[in-house]
Each structure stands twice: as C-alpha cells, then as structure tokens.
Write a protein that binds this DNA or RNA. Structure first.
Lengths: 152, 152
DNA sequence: TATTTCAAACGAATAATTTTTGGTTTATAC
DNA sequence: GTATAAACCAAAAATTATTCGTTTGAAATA
C-alpha cells in the first residue's frame, strides 16, 4: 500500500480544505483522474485519518451574533485535572467557537461570539469567572476574522 | 417570503456547522421534515447567505505540521491602506490558518501551523518582519486546539 | 530481459442521492 | 371568507456515489 501522500492526494486535501462540499465528480474533474479513483483516494484519506471532518461556515452577524471576541484566560493552577476540567466546561459554554490551550502567558484562548454586550458580560462574569480556578481573563474585540487555510 | 429563521433552520445550520458533509437525506431524517423541504430550506439558507461555505478539517500532524502557534502582531501604523495590505499579504503566507484583525493591544492575531522551528523562524523573520510596518510580534505555542462551534 | 507482483487507475453497472415538478395544505393579510 | 404566498409531500427525472471486475504501470525478482 502507498504510504506517503502524492501530489494528487495533496490536491484533494487542498480542495476539500477550502470547499468541503465539493462532489467526488468535481474533484475528479479538477485533478484529472477517474471518479472511481478519486473516490478510492478520498476513502483512504478518510480511513487513514487525514480527513477528519468538515465544518460549515455560517454568517454570524446574520444570526445576531454581533460581537466576536478573543478571551485570554489565566488559571491559578495548571494541574492536569484542572486543565481537563476547563476544556470540558469551556467546550460547553454557549458562544465558544474555538478553544486553544496555550503554552505561554495565557493558559487558554477562547474565540467567542455573542449577541451583545450583556451576553458578553454574562459569559465572562456568570460562566467563566465562576470557575474557581480562573485567575484572570482579558477580552479583546475581533474586528474581522478570516479563515485562510493556507497550509497545503 | 419568510424572513426570520425558525427552529428547523437553526437545526439545519447547527447540524451543518458540525458536519458539513451531511446529506440532505440525513438532515431531513434528523429534523423530521421532508427531504424536499430540507432541500428548499438549505437552498434558501445558502441563497440568503446564512451558509457561506464549508471547510474540511485535516490532520495537521499527519501532514508534518508539528508546530502550531498564535502570533500577536503590532503594526506601527493603523492606516486603512496598511491594514488592507497586511491582510492581503498575511493571507498568502504559507502556514496561516486563520487571521484576526483585533481592536486592542495587538493589531492582528495569526493562527499558524509549520513543520518545525526552522520554518517558524523563517515565517517570522523572512516573511513577517520584512514587512516594514510591523512593530513587533509575539509568538505563543498552541498545545491543543479544539473547534467547538457552540454558537447555535 | 522477462516475469511476477501489487497498488492504483479505469470503466461500466448499480445504488443512492439530489433536484425538480406539481398538486395539496397551511398560514397570513386583507 | 377569500386571496395569496409559502410550506409541504410524494413521485419522477437527473445527477452523483459506490461497487467491482479488468487493465495499466511501476518496482522487484529471477
């Protein structure tokens, strides 16, 4: 079995990275191999774990999510159990888009979208700061945010 | 024409947000309306701009992208033209996953994946710092990163 | 050089899904 | 109560995905 990825595989990943809803046929046409071959490759890429899923992009503003922020969070302990607890809790907080566990000044960075400043206030004061291992949070507004995906 | 979204629309968006490759049939089954109605709704959601696209998620480590960082960037000017220039340039830099334009201490935050520390060094010194309006950059390692998408 | 091997590519048939269509029902405004 | 538009449902048509047997091509071996 082929072990590394060849350029066709990279092309497939790259196409799907930017448009996960491309059909097999469309991909086959773009990379110029048979539909069945494209299908085989995508299946293998999925089985081997190169392709892990796909997210739709939605218009947050149209949904009333007018405020987008980055929240830098410091914990007062970095024990494994506390980290795990925070990841679990934070993943369930409404408004959280993405969570980063950081090795640096902040322990976590949360990318969050909320409707308005009241909701933001509630998020920080009622949801986050009530976790007793939170040392501090620092909130910064996002003016604009672009998915670039320039990694292939 | 219906203007706001009802709960079925929200369900559709929510399902696609977490799995953009769900078929029309699967969605119809989950939200318990006819396939054709689901189809109509998705078509409208797309036409009206609620659904904007979809990204595949790929396994970065398997592709040799072993280092993931957050780069906080300050510019020495915030003129519109410079902001636009930076967004354009940064979007084309290999390794950039996501770009945030911030209203705060940093002007931009870049989420970047690279192969190794040499590539990171090249990214910062050769690609970024050569832009003459860059005042400073601060790099922090990402230990773990989760897409949560808890917004619907 | 010929032969074997094996994964990938191919092509065509089948299965499944999506798209379209048209008639019926439902909701709302007048 | 009627008119109108949208939503719904079910069936047919078109398109796409999947399967599988065959062929091709490249590398390894005799």
């Amino acid at each position: 079995m082929r072990n590394e990825l060849d350029s066709k595989d990279i092309q497939i990943l790259s196409l799907l990275l930017n448009n996960a809803r491309l059909s097999n046929k469309e991909i086959a046409a773009k990379i110029e191999i048979a539909q069945s071959s494209t299908h085989d490759r995508i299946k293998k890429l999925t089985q081997k774990g190169y392709l892990k899923g796909a997210f739709a992009q939605i218009d947050q503003k149209k949904l009333g999510l007018n405020i987008e922020v980055i929240l830098a969070i410091k914990l007062n302990k970095q024990h494994r159990a506390i980290i795990a607890d925070f990841i679990e809790k934070a993943s369930q907080l409404p408004g959280v888009i993405q969570l980063f566990h950081m090795a640096g000044n902040s322990d976590f960075i949360l990318h969050v979208a909320v409707k308005d400043s009241d909701e933001l206030r509630g998020f920080i004061l009622d949801r986050l700061s009530t976790l007793d291992y939170i040392q501090s949070t620092e909130t910064t507004m996002v003016l604009h945010n672009e998915r670039v995906n320039n990694i292939l």
